[in-house]
Design a protein around this nucleic acid. Sequence first.
DNA 1: TTAAAAGTGTATATTTGTGTATGTTTTATG
DNA 2: CATAAAACATACACAAATATACACTTTTAA
Lengths: 207, 207
Amino acid sequence: MFYDLSDKELEALKIIRNSLVHQGSIPSVRELMIGLGYKSPRSSAVILRTLEEKEILRKKSDGRYQIVDFEIPEDYGSRAQTIKVPLLGSVACGIPIFADENIEAEVSISIEMIKSGYKYFLLRAEGDSMDEADINDGDLLLIRQQQDADNGDRVLALIDDEATVKEYNRSGGMVILKPKSTNKIHQPIILKSDFRIQGIVEEVISL
Amino acid sequence: MFYDLSDKELEALKIIRNSLVHQGSIPSVRELMIGLGYKSPRSSAVILRTLEEKEILRKKSDGRYQIVDFEIPEDYGSRAQTIKVPLLGSVACGIPIFADENIEAEVSISIEMIKSGYKYFLLRAEGDSMDEADINDGDLLLIRQQQDADNGDRVLALIDDEATVKEYNRSGGMVILKPKSTNKIHQPIILKSDFRIQGIVEEVISL
DNA sequence: TTAAAAGTGTATATTTGTGTATGTTTTATG
DNA sequence: CATAAAACATACACAAATATACACTTTTAA
């Protein structure tokens, strides 16, 4: 199927796939030109045409290209596609959550861990601000950004400038954030119902 | 084995090997011409043809040459018994890892480096895709093909169509591939636990 | 309604492998 | 020695594949 592709065609295909995963669209002729190191858009346009002739790409009804169904290799599980997610070091009230100074790095996460249509970020757990039993200093929390939650969800909230993870419970006109285990240090937090959370903890990653 | 090669043929072979390791491809007729000091491309073309007739080179299905027998220099078992292992140049999407096109050469490796019962292959490290401190551009990685690993093993994984070497760590429902040293560029990669690796890095051979 | 961005056509340039003819050096042999 | 045969190099040219320059629509967004 792909055996008669030249080096440049293969490289183009890589760029196209990458662009699909990371930007959601096939790159423009000029983007592809830059990616492949060409100096004229014609060259990359020709490559696209060739890929179409080789039936790797197909034009959709709106004239745009689409990748013709990828042959899934037998060892598919061993080929991962990832998406980059910002890793936030510390989060404080007042600073927009994705402000530059918060972003420590971009971490690659398997796209299988991601629901499309949502934004995600990673947060590094620090000290005891996360009072959950299974979150330790240095762990990474994968958080899906959304402002509503169901009862029982583990949510990230900003309480007194601290990033805090607790169980979400709405009851009556209030929101109660419960620590998993109640003790002297970890007590529930009671908030007005217009309080907004930052997101839902999807995964806890121990490094 | 190489005893019936002329001086120029041997020199050509050296240049070809060097080009293979450092640029990942057999040199063009004109590159080889320059390397050998010829003034016409014909001369080097003839040499290539001769090497093919002497079965030092072989044409792959895509028309390109591959080296039939590439001995690792130095004293990697120069007199010892050897076994031939494929040298893979680039590994790309959709192409089975041992497809003809990927195999640049067959390299002789001392059998003392090989555990019986496993398949092996060599991979050429390219640029910075291998972020380990002790793997440099052009090094050859001897990889034992297997799909499971223990925590701490150095594994080869295909991430977004890049061959990547990182430390394997399974924790909870996830697999985390850690770079040896973490910094802005080299961050862990977080994958779902059904992810399968390509193999384990057994040796790093610097040429 | 305009300006910028994106895709495409034509013509030309560059690179690559290879063919033919010819020149040069080496070697073997009468 | 002489010289023919073989091996090795060079010059030049051609076709196919690739890449470039540039201009001209069409599309998109302001």
